[in-house]
Amino acid sequence: MKQRLELKLNGEMREVFVEPWRTLAEVLRDELGLLGTKVSCGTGDCGACNVLLEGKVVSSCLVLAPQAQGREILTIEGLATPEGLHPLQEAFIEHFAVQCGYCIPGMIITAKACLDENPDATEDEVRLAMSGNLCRCTGYVKVTEAIMAAKEKMKKSVSGTGYGKGR
């Protein structure tokens, strides 16, 4: 029953053979060893498993593996470049946005999608875009602060390092 699945994963072509009822989250974690993507609720209600599919944020626990066939996926592991961390990652560290950390990969991925789409997002817009990502530790205060700080950094570095849109 296994089918060939090809993904452009974090910029690299990957091939695996999986049953069609595997979710993208399972493929990433169990087949490809990318354990940064977490599964917390399994019903698309918490955002912990969020990844970018063709640049758009999706809950990978609700995407069947074949739905991702041939498509581009970005996970938390693909965010940093050899030159360094993504501004969001830096800001999450600097602003103490991290506690238990289980929700953080999904948070950062969603925040990236939010800022890619709306580089001038206001605090309210950020809160709205992020409202599907649950965190029980932080109360979101420092996470919001970190995203707003990263926004400024990203705006400055759009032309330079290639951290802006896409990837």
Binding site: G36, L79, L88, F92, I93, E94, V98, I104
Partner: peptide, 12 residues
């Protein structure tokens, strides 16, 4: 800075 922050923001 939290000692666990780097590994947590990089998914490690």
């Amino acid at each position: 800075t939290r000692l666990d922050a780097l590994e947590k923001v990089t998914g490690k």
